[in-house]
Design a protein around this nucleic acid. Structure first.
Lengths: 358, 358
DNA sequence: TATTATACCGTGAACGTTCACGTACCTCGG
DNA sequence: CCGAGGTACGTGAACGTTCACGGTATAATA
């Protein structure tokens, strides 16, 4: 029963160091912040005793004094509201402890990729200190991010990424893993093997390819005679998605599994219904929106891979804030472990999410 | 492209309210904190203008002034280190933003249930403001929690619960959902039906029963001819677990699935190996410890239900801190959505977890 | 009316840190 | 030897809030 409990001594402050060395608090401040106007020798001594005494800066006092509020612009689409609002909630939640020191500015564009450049330039012009953005069109956004980098304004991408740009980091459910988990689930759901189809969407090419790679890798790894017989691009257009799904179902009357990695998986689900194949095909989707809930509950959708927007928002804000405070660089790609949502944990997930908002 | 961005006005403080009403900041302070010595009428006016101006207290200043550090005792076992250390990390991580205002005191007992009463009494005697504990023996701990409640010391249970006591809240992966997810996975993995067995452990009776209930509900809901033919108590003794697993395997030569909800699932896995039935039986376990990793990677274990200690720690600390600060009561049962860990997302999970520690 | 009590409110000092400014000392060309 | 310029350090005021104390009315009592 070791009781490893630190001595309840009161925390050492900047003036404890000053007193211990017989210098003034100004000198200690200069030493701790690499400021000019101090003897390198005394700086060393200050840093040494600071370490020896176990000095931890009092964040409260620091934030109080530095009247400069950090402004972070959060630019996300409005649609699909449930998803992006969850993301915003995560950001808000993570920002709460740092209250007026950190100011959030929410800007919204109607849909992913529409008008995001204008929003970005507007935020940049208003002089914010950092930006959180979900790039819909990474190529179009690249010069903006470059401009931000020149102005030393860190940018963090969420959900989607703009790879190859000077963004500080990206937060996302690792697309390879998303595809991989879907593939493994389908393989396990089909122990006797069978044909499966992969429906992808309108997301950036990078993500799409990664998901497919993960899916393929997983299906082949289990190796029980599960074969990917169709890779279909469903785009965001409902009708084309629906038609293509019908075509795939017709072409493969023996289809046993489907992975729909589109945000809007409904057309595919409707096509399966229309053909009367519900229950004969194991279906895995991504994301979680209201229309999907009853389909999971009824078992038409076996599982959905949820990319946890709340958590992504939290991580994005924390990484950005840490960087603005300390200058500590986060890993370039912050990967969120996606959730596997099925009938059995659906209610718990919905309940938790609704409980987070107040 | 609505740019819903609030006016970048500087945050309104207590003295803004005072100036607006022509009173002193002391009066405003009294009004805002329900302190005596103020005219009910002026209090109303202060509260009204505070709301009108959108006053948000500056947490930094508040924490700076109130020299009283909140001390929270965290008492967890040392074994299994990987698990409990993750939990501790989550607590530490969540406490970081509130630095010297909040002081963590870690106390450890060797194993779950051993010496926890002593630790609890010791913490109580040392005058901490709040306690986070994982009760191994809820019955033995009940008088302690009662004593804490009398002293107005809030107690939060993590991982395990002490139901029916006056603890403030419990944080855990909802055991019903854990069992339910395992049941659904096994049912889906066995589309042709078959016999499955349920191995449980030494945990509190409450959790155990809940998991079994969830498992049963799920297996029956899918209803494809999957039957629970054995419910075995494996205890924490390795040998009895091993022997009983062998017995179950012998008694059911046609067994198709196993759910091991013990912390230590190795004896069962070894029994399956010994009987040469690896690959013929779909196995779902709980938790994630080093010895389990290669078995997941090889596919012997199809999935494991991970109760996310880091997240549990974070929630526990946040709930406790909020209560100590505002008095806002958290929900009695804070449920963490468990992770489904399979080969495809194992690496991502391990990587994220190791990356969290620094 | 003078005195005390009570209710209400103002005042100022802290909390730990940061930053602009002030000051002491040293160096060096004139 | 003087003062200009520089380096190294001390000083004090702020940041927004809390809290103990002191002050001023009005009411109650002698």
């Amino acid at each position: 029963m070791r009781a490893r409990v630190p001595p309840p001594a009161r925390p050492v402050g900047i003036k404890d160091i000053a007193r211990a060395l017989g210098v003034s608090i100004g000198t200690v401040d200069r030493a701790l912040h690499n400021k000019p106007g101090i003897n390198p020798d005394t700086r060393r001594r200050v840093l040494d005793t600071a370490a020896a005494l176990g000095y931890r800066p009092n964040l409260a006092a620091r934030h109080l004094k530095s009247r400069t509020t950090i402004r972070i612009s959060v630019q996300l689409p409005q649609e699909i509201a449930l998803f992006w609002d969850s993301l915003r909630d995560g950001i808000r939640e993570a920002a709460a402890p740092f209250e007026p020191t950190l100011q959030l500015e929410f800007r919204s564009n109607p849909r992913l990729g529409e008008g995001e450049v204008e929003l970005f330039e507007q935020a940049l012009a208003s002089g914010v200190n950092g930006i959180i953005v979900a790039p819909g069109d990474p190529v179009a956004l690249e010069p903006c991010i470059r401009q931000a980098a020149r102005n030393n304004i860190p940018v963090i991408c969420v959900v989607t990424d703009a790879p190859g740009t000077e963004r500080l980091a990206s937060v996302s459910a690792d697309p390879f893993t998303v595809g991989s988990v879907a593939g493994e689930l389908l393989s396990r759901f089909l122990p006797n093997g069978g044909d499966v189809a992969f429906f992808t969407g309108w997301l950036g090419t990078e993500d799409h390819a990664e998901k497919l790679r993960g899916f393929d890798a997983s299906v082949n790894a289990v190796g029980r005679g599960v074969h990917v017989v169709a890779v279909v691009e469903a785009h965001d257009d409902e009708r084309t998605g629906y038609r293509r799904a019908l075509a795939v179902l017709d072409a493969h009357p023996d289809l046993k599994g489907i992975f729909v990695s589109t945000v809007n998986s409904l057309p595919v689900l409707r096509a399966v219904e229309r053909k009367g194949r519900t229950g004969q095909i194991a279906i895995v989707t991504t994301d979680l929106f209201p229309a999907l809930v009853p389909r999971i509950r009824q078992g038409q959708v076996a599982a959905t891979i949820y990319q946890r927007p709340v958590t992504q928002g939290r991580h994005a804000l924390q990484a950005l804030y840490q960087f603005l405070l300390d200058g500590t660089k986060p890993p370039t790609r912050i990967k969120v472990v996606p959730h596997v949502v099925m009938r059995s944990n659906l209610d718990l997930l919905l309940e938790r999410r609704s409980g987070e908002t107040p």
